[in-house]
Design a protein around this nucleic acid. Structure first.
Lengths: 195, 195
DNA sequence: CTCGCTTGTCTAGCGCTGCTAGAATCCAGT
DNA sequence: ACTGGATTCTAGCAGCGCTAGACAAGCGAG
């Protein structure tokens, strides 16, 4: 049975290679450049091999998205853990979120702009996505304010961040004043308990 | 010279037909269904005719976006004009904006998700886009709060609305609580002068 | 009225896309 | 060493955006 196991290991390894290659290619040249042919060439296999791992290109995007969601959750948690108080925590969260979107635009696209075939905001939403939302909620719940549902607050704050991230990256907003927009958002939306 | 003028009129009419047909097709079946072949068939001309009016598909998307921007500006102005006070005005603006995004998803995509080859937030930004932003600013400037630049406030509020619109439509947010998210945004972000 | 020329339109096709059927190859177990 | 099943490849389909070059239509000049 050891032979079979080795083959399975190699298969899993190749699958990781596909996802990593797709991500790298997307990050370097944009998702438009990620074609099944190019991807196959990079991993040094023929096109149909991709389809023995994924149903199609959509599922490859989805795999990159899940990987990215886990990283984003970690980035947000790392940033908020170091912050001393609620206000600083929210500010750190906002900066970390937008920083992630800026540093990994292709991953951010896979998560929120492209169709990766993933279910969102549902029972069967994949764990990494739920966890990324949870990471936001952990730091946002404490500043939701009395009488405001933490989940609803998190959704709204997240939407605002997402809007900033999307519009900035698409050139719809001049990037120079990004910090001041973040400050505005944090100061107004978050309800910080009196010291 | 009258013959020439008639021809120009007919050409302009055909151009309107192309844009209207593209928009309708996108609204009914999504932008993926808007292919140059299908579009050409619908207007009962051959494919190359499209390229005598537009440089490519991107420019057709851009034309739909400009048309949509004008309509959105009008919708926002109509909604805010009827509102009695600043707080109601902002709430009406938010509802009108999100309502537009919901009712005309293809147009909203053309404006903000697809590449229509348009310049945003620049000197040479087309007038309809500038005007749509101006329409938002007209009602938002009065609630920016002292010491907050109205332009910056408009950008931030707009980004928040855009985030809600995008995430809701993509299934990333459950749509039931949309009204409460809007209320949260309006109540927290807008600074309403004491009565 | 006819000719020649510009202007407009169409047919056909290029290179690319995601995806797949069926041939070919490799390799483990007897 | 052979055979059967798993694996991988070659080749190709239909559709995409876009365009070159053939063709037709309609104008002004003679």
């Amino acid at each position: 049975m050891s032979v079979h196991e080795r083959k399975q290991r190699e298969r899993a390894e190749r699958e990781r290679l596909i996802v990593a290659t797709a991500r790298e290619l997307a990050e370097r040249q944009g998702w438009d450049a990620v074609t099944t042919r190019r991807l196959a060439e990079r991993i040094e296999y023929s096109q149909p091999v991709l389809y023995s791992h994924f149903r199609g290109k959509r599922e490859i995007i989805g795999a990159v998205a899940l990987e990215g969601a886990a990283e984003m959750a970690a980035a947000v948690r790392a940033a908020t853990a170091a912050a001393p108080g609620p206000r600083e925590r929210v500010a750190a969260l906002a900066r970390a979120y937008l920083d992630f979107a800026t540093r990994h635009p292709a991953v951010y696209d896979a998560l929120f702009h492209l169709d990766g075939g993933l279910a969102y905001a549902r029972e069967d939403t994949p764990a990494p996505l739920k966890d990324a939302f949870a990471a936001l909620r952990e730091s946002l719940a404490e500043v939701a304010g009395d009488g405001t549902d933490p989940g609803l607050f998190t959704e709204t704050f997240w939407a605002a961040l997402h809007g900033l991230a999307t519009l900035t990256r698409a050139g719809r907003l001049p990037p120079e004043l990004a910090d001041r927009r973040i400050a505005l958002l944090v100061d107004r939306l978050a309800v910080v308990p009196a010291p």
